[in-house]
Design a protein around this nucleic acid. Structure first.
Length: 439
DNA sequence: CGTATTTGACCGGCGC
DNA sequence: GCGCCGGTCAAATACG
């Protein structure tokens, strides 16, 4: 795996090289720079791997404390089945203290009295890693609020671009009208957007009357089978586990968006100030980046594009097949980038999902990390989108789980928000699979 | 009859 | 200032 990571960086550099907006220096010098950067990346990677091991130990310790019954190590366990491997708890954050802590005005009032914070379902890991202080407080706090608070409280002179609410777009192949993300939505409008003959439907969250979350859904003009769902805002109410998965994922993406914009103003600013721009570097695995060098990214998401549209910072999670896929890649997991079918891709749905087949999928193989675009070489079940796939998923779930967990934990080490999102997703899927507690 | 959806009107931001 | 466009509103309509 480390090997593939290294090869990723090696190929990645070529892409960055190809995509650099301004080529002011000779290519040779640039290649030299990139090589140097690659060395740095390798060094950082080894550091991250060490941190990962440390975190793994911490997590195991924590887990043993929280759940003595399950004495099996989470990540190092090579023998348990997938269900047992993942026991990330999407629980309460008893130690959670909101440092910047503006009270969330619209959280259910009933939860505002004593100890309420502990009762609320927090979108984050129910544990603390030995992360830095600022990381520790970074749960999947509503990104919109975060953005606002950040702007208000610590105004970065470099961050004065009047960006609107962060948006998170999710592209999936889906035959249904909307992607079932476990939340309740009410349609309040429909428009034909310019440049796309397919109407765009506008939905608002109806779980809570005061919930500000909106989404719009539109089919891709190029490929009608691709559904583009764009989320804006953050739920101000507890979510069902199934909804939490998507909400936390998008929140994490939005948080990442925020963090990238705040930590690398020059480059992202360049993209953000344009009225409509998407400055991406395509990695050979389909990871796309804006003009920021990859090593500056807090984590990587496959098929992720950061862009702005009408001053809305938008991060796009492309969960369809990878159009940027580099044929020259030799990395296995990259070669198996799946094209999600409506039945096997994102299933954040509740058991009442209209996508029954996806439910079946998750029940048989609850840990479907392919959502994050990471697949292992042995996973062939996505290549033939038929019902038989579910059997394959079932039979290969054990190996699948181990490998995906390894991939997941690596990702977890990279970004706290992503950690939380991943944990939520895992927990959601596992609980759905096991018929576990629902909120 | 209550609730959800549809759809044309309206509004505000943005570019020219 | 004007027009375009995305987004929202709200009355009308459909549905269970």
């Amino acid at each position: 795996m480390e090997k593939s990571m290294f090869s990723f960086f090696e190929v990645e550099e070529e892409h960055d090289d190809q995509n650099l907006v301004s080529k002011t220096s000779p290519q040779d010098a640039e290649m030299g720079q990139v090589r140097q950067e690659n060395q740095n990346l390798k060094h950082k990677l080894s550091t991250v791997l060490k941190d990962y091991e440390t975190l793994q130990m911490h997590f195991n310790d924590f887990f043993l404390q929280e759940n003595p019954k399950s004495s099996e190590s989470l990540v190092s366990d090579k023998e348990g089945d997938g269900n047992e491997l993942i026991s990330l708890s999407l629980g309460t954050l008893s130690s959670y203290k909101q440092k910047n802590s503006p009270k969330k005005a619209n959280y259910f009032n009933k939860s505002k009295e004593g100890g309420d914070d502990e009762q609320e379902l927090k979108l984050g890991l129910g544990c603390e890693f030995d992360m830095k202080k600022d990381e520790r407080i970074q749960t999947l706090e509503p990104p919109v609020h975060s953005l606002k608070n950040e702007r208000r409280e610590d105004i970065d002179p470099l961050d004065q671009i009047p960006l609107k609410k962060a948006r998170v777009s999710v592209k999936v192949v889906c035959d249904t009208q909307t992607m079932n993300d476990g939340c309740q939505w009410r349609k309040y409008g429909q428009k034909i957007a310019k440049g796309n003959p397919c109407p765009r439907a506008y939905y608002r969250c109806t779980v809570s009357p005061s919930c500000p979350v909106r989404k719009h859904v539109q089919r891709c003009a190029e490929d009608r089978s691709v559904l583009i769902t764009t989320y804006e805002g953050t739920h101000n109410h507890p979510l069902s586990v199934s909804a939490t998965a998507m909400a936390s994922t998008t929140s994490a993406a939005a948080s990442m968006l925020k963090s990238t914009s705040s930590t690398s103003p020059p480059n992202l600013t360049t993209a953000a100030t344009a009225s409509s721009s998407t400055t991406t570097f395509s990695g050979h695995n389909g990871m796309t980046y804006n003009s920021r060098p990859p090593h500056q990214y807090p984590f990587y998401l496959p098929n992720t594009t950061i862009s702005t549209y009408q001053s809305h910072p938008t991060i796009t999670l492309d969960l369809t097949s990878n159009p940027h896929f580099n044929k020259s890649t030799s990395s296995n997991f990259l070669r198996t980038q799946p094209r999600f079918s409506s039945s096997s891709c994102l299933n954040f749905s509740s058991p009442s999902s209209s996508c029954s087949s996806s439910m079946e999928s998750n029940y048989k193989n609850p840990i479907n990390f392919s959502y994050f675009g990471r697949q292992t070489p042995n996973e062939t079940f996505y290549q033939k989108p038929s019902n038989d796939n579910f059997q394959n998923q079932s039979s290969s779930s054990s190996n699948h789980s181990q490998e995906t967990i390894a991939a997941a934990t690596k990702a977890l080490t990279a970004n706290p928000s992503f950690r939380s999102a991943l944990a939520a997703s895992i927990t959601s899927l596992v609980r759905n699979a096991g018929g576990g507690a629902r909120i």
